[in-house]
Nucleic acid binder design. Structure first.
Length: 893
DNA sequence: TACTATCCGTT
DNA sequence: GACGTACGGATAGTAT
């Protein structure tokens, strides 16, 4: 019995793996603690995780050629029709289990595993039927079930894997193993079970008869039929008990017989396993937040034909000799890969180029002669040679670091992969190759960090990767086009790469002294507030930065009322602390809030100060492949979350200054861009009129909602309407609105009702956009950028609700992102056309910052105004505010 | 060292 | 019973 999990001997015709879905999911559920397995949104995943792990192990160990997972359907079966109390003693399934069943089916779908079910029949009956069909087809059959009834299926061709504990410890039942454990042959097991009874099925047995007696009788009388025939002769107390319960035994035997002759929808030959879909596996692993499991599932992905064709072309011969001459003679289109890093102390060290189906060139850039240097630099800077890269902006920087320009970028497979599915995570070359071509690079080659001492290997690696990029482009370009995003890709995202590269390269000048003074100040305030906080609790120097220790102080020691629940207890966030301070005022709370404020500030300042480069400027890194809505993101440091609301925030912005040799900073931002997009997309006449009128939007809307003259709109009314308007674009509920405005839910609901009665087009649009997305599976911006929202059809309420908010927000936020990106291209083109030396240095979602050269301020203001306005042709005007100053704060006013 | 949880800054 | 999008990033605490 210890020979569990050893692969069965494979027959020449293959192996059929049959799994009882629910019984194994249930075992997984109870085998793994539910509290340790959930997504960040609280969806429990322990059963999905355990089940999937088990399945992956089985698939890997046994390499089944045919595969099916059978499910019980809700509702009764022919057995409960026969006996309503059948399985009647089972406890109510835990509420965390049910929602995981559709998730398991999603995993199976991604893996390409057939799920089978049949109304009025149990999964076991399907297993029994498929076991017979598989056996008749000459397949070796493996049944995996936690239901003992399936023991009857075991024979020379059918082995049962039965969970002993959890789902990772499976016992292998062959006929001999069954005989050894139960003392009967597998086909006699139901006879035995009929006599002994099955508590889990609510089938009582013969009192006083256990497995030993049952086995003995079966041995003596040859089976249940013989036993019942000779019932009168069965001796002893047990014999009498048997005679008293003959009807029950007959019923048991009738019910525990599994049907092997069901009509099945899927013939057994269609259970042949053809592999899963890599993209779908990624998608489901993303959704369920599976990390380690992803790597175990991906090997089951089948490459499709297109991908395989592309992989073929990626099988390259890499050549280094004569590479420079060969490459510089190319007129494109070519795939280019650059190894190296941008930045102050590193540059490009290897270049790979691929343009033919089977030859790629690799060049070691570290040992080039002057002639080669010149030729290569010219070729890279030649805009008439079209080039495709993966992460072109990084390559741009790496080449720039050695003084070379990169031009002619016509494609970026990283961006293409992002457009195809922006919700994915991880767009590094090796990840995208894995995802779309099923290719696995070895980690050294994939990372591009090859040892320079290995002679030509860096060059060869670069050549190989260039070939892979070429293959990727061949697969991804049609996918982008298929999704209607060819123009968005070629005319917006790709040209933007160079614009962003130049912005990052330029950076923003910083007044170090100002920053330093601010830092000291904030540090001092934080320290003083900390002392106040310690004093307020009797001098105990708890770590104020530790939510855990704060919880202990607030809720245990001070006995304060509980705040909102979080995973680790009760929240100590700012809004909770404010609430607490109203309910139970305490000097500790005030001091803690002040400390939080000051230390956050000093932390931000410290991070910024540390990010200043030797050139006295901060160079952020923008990404086009992070925010699923299409917004840019900024990191190292993030310049898109610099404080602005507080006086201290203003002072931080004052430290961002115009650089030497330049004149001013000009900042231009769209006014109410999201509401304008809402007006355009919804076509609501009231909202369009509001913008056409050109007066204060929230005042206008407020006057309509509250039925007063615009002058009669109080600041209170205005702020309520403003919160309402913006909340709409985020899928705000009346509860959320109430909480934000400090109103009763009823009042918030009334406000929403009034709003919608005046702006019905908005309500209709919001409703329609979700419906359309549910139908199509994706949302779209004005410019055709897609975001897929599969969870709109999820049976899980929470997932569905989140998906609805995503569907509401994505077209609005995404269209705004498209607009400002278009504006950036327009601004860049105008600056160049007009021969100006001013340059864009920052984008913050609805705001552009330009550093102007002397004498160009007026021209730049005009360009910003015009290009931002002209970025889209909407049914409402795009209003732009422009400001100028020697620092970011001043310009922003 | 790597990862999770919490908190908080922006739009 | 929860309940507003999209991010980046610091810190604490825990797992490896």
């Amino acid at each position: 019995m210890e020979d569990r999990l050893a692969p069965v001997s494979e027959s020449t015709k293959g192996t059929l793996l049959l799994v009882d879905g629910l019984s194994m999911a249930f075992r997984a559920f109870f085998g793994l603690p539910v509290e340790n397995f959930a997504t960040s949104t609280g969806v429990p995943t322990n059963a999905v995780y355990g089940f999937t792990t088990m399945l992956a192990t089985l698939m890997k160990d046994h390499e089944p050629t045919h595969l099916a997972v059978a499910f019980d359907l809700p509702g009764g079966t022919f057995r409960t029709e026969r006996l309503p109390s059948y399985k009647g003693t089972r406890d109510e399934t835990p509420p965390e289990f049910e929602p995981q069943v559709p998730l398991i089916r999603e995993v199976l779908g991604a893996l390409g595993v057939t799920a089978v079910d049949k109304p009025r029949y149990e999964a076991d009956d399907l297993l029994a039927t498929y076991a017979r069909l598989g056996r008749e087809a000459g397949l070796r059959v493996l049944v995996v079930s936690g239901d003992r009834d399936t023991i009857q299926l075991v024979n020379d061709d059918v082995t049962l894997l039965y969970p002993r504990k959890g789902v990772s410890d499976l016992v292998r039942f062959t006929p001999d193993a069954v005989q050894e454990k139960y003392g009967v042959r597998p086909e006699q097991y139901p006879d035995m079970a009929a006599l002994v009874g099955e508590t889990s099925d609510n089938l009582p047995g013969v009192p006083g008869v256990g497995p030993k007696t049952a086995a003995k009788w079966i041995g003596v009388y040859g089976g249940l039929a013989g036993i019942l025939e000779s019932a009168e002769d069965v001796p002893g107390k047990a014999g009498q008990s048997l005679r008293d319960h003959v009807d029950q035994v007959r019923l048991n035997r009738e019910l525990n017989h599994l049907l092997t002759d069901l009509e099945v929808e899927v013939p057994v030959e269609d259970l042949e396993y053809a592999g899963g879909d890599a993209a779908a596996i990624h998608e489901v692993c993303d959704a369920l937040q599976f990390r380690t499991l992803r790597d175990r599932l991906l090997p089951f992905a089948a490459g499709d034909d297109a991908a395989e064709a592309a992989v073929e072309t990626a099988a390259v011969v890499v050549r280094s000799e004569g590479a420079v001459a060969a490459v510089t003679a190319m007129t494109g289109p070519v795939a280019v890969h650059v190894d190296g890093r941008g930045g102050a102390d590193a540059d490009a060290w290897a270049l790979g180029v691929a343009d033919a189906a089977d030859v790629a060139w690799g060049i070691d850039l570290t040992g080039l002669g002057p002639a080669d240097e010149k030729a290569l630099a010219a070729w890279l800077a030649d805009a008439s040679v079209p080039k495709v890269l993966h992460g072109a902006k990084d390559a741009w920087h790496a080449l720039q670091a050695r003084g070379w320009d990169l031009a002619g970028i016509v494609g970026d497979t990283q961006i293409a992969a992002f457009l195809v599915n922006p919700d994915q995570r991880g767009f590094e070359l090796d990840q995208i190759l894995q995802r779309h071509l099923g290719l696995t690079l070895d980690s050294a080659a994939a990372s591009g960090e090859l040892d320079l001492g290995l002679g030509g290997s860096a060059a060869e690696g670069a050549g190989e990767r260039a070939a892979h990029v070429r293959a990727l482009a061949a697969v991804l370009d049609p996918m982008v086009a298929e999704r209607g995003m060819a123009d968005l890709y070629a005319d917006l995202e790709i040209p933007l790469v160079s614009v962003l590269a130049r912005m990052e390269h330029a950076g923003m000048a910083v007044d170090r002294e100002k920053l330093g003074a601010l830092s000291d100040e904030a540090r001092g305030r934080a320290d003083r507030a900390a002392e106040d906080a310690y004093a307020a609790i009797g001098g105990d120097r708890v770590n104020l930065g530790s939510p855990k220790q704060l919880q202990e102080v607030l809720f245990d020691r001070l006995g304060m009322p509980k705040t909102k629940k979080i995973k680790t207890g009760y929240s100590t966030d700012a809004s909770s602390l404010h609430d607490l301070n109203e309910k139970a005022p305490h000097p500790f709370l005030t001091a803690l809030l002040a400390h939080r404020d000051a230390s956050k500030l000093s932390q931000i300042i410290e991070t910024l100060a540390q990010a200043v480069q030797p050139d006295g400027r901060i160079h952020t890194t923008f990404s086009q492949v992070v925010a699923a809505t299409g917004r840019l993101s900024s990191k190292d440091p993030n310049l898109q979350n610099i404080p602005i609301r507080t006086p201290e925030g203003h002072r931080i912005r004052e430290a961002f200054v115009v650089g030497e040799g330049f004149d001013t900073l000009v900042t231009a931002d769209y006014s109410q861009i999201e509401m304008r997009i809402m007006a355009h997309l919804s076509g609501d006449s009231g909202l369009i009129e509001a913008f056409a009128a050109g007066e204060d939007l929230h005042r206008f809307v407020g006057s309509r909602v509250f039925g007063v003259a615009p002058e009669g709109v109080t600041p209170e009314m205005r702020s309520q309407v403003k919160a309402m308007s913006y909340g709409l674009a985020y899928g705000l509920s009346s509860f959320g609105l109430a909480r934000q405005l400090g109103l009763p839910v009823g009042a918030a609901q009334a406000l929403m009702d009034d709003y919608f009665s005046r702006f019905g087009g908005v309500r209709d649009y919001l409703h329609a956009v979700v419906e359309q997305a549910r139908k199509d599976g994706y949302t779209e911006t004005i410019f055709g950028r897609r975001r897929y929202v599969p969870d709109l059809t999820s049976t899980n309420r929470q997932r569905r609700d989140i998906a609805e908010r995503v569907a509401l927000n994505a077209p609005i936020q995404g269209s705004a992102a498209d607009l400002i990106k278009r504006a950036m291209l327009g601004v860049e083109a105008r600056l160049k056309d007009e021969g100006l030396a001013s340059r864009q240095v920052l984008q913050v979602h609805d705001e552009l910052v330009v550093e102007t050269a002397p004498g160009e301020r007026a021209a730049v203001e005009t360009i910003l105004r015009e290009e931002m306005r002209a970025a889209g042709d909407l049914s409402v005007p795009l209003d732009v505010n422009v400001g100028t100053g020697g620092d970011w704060r001043t310009a922003g006013h």
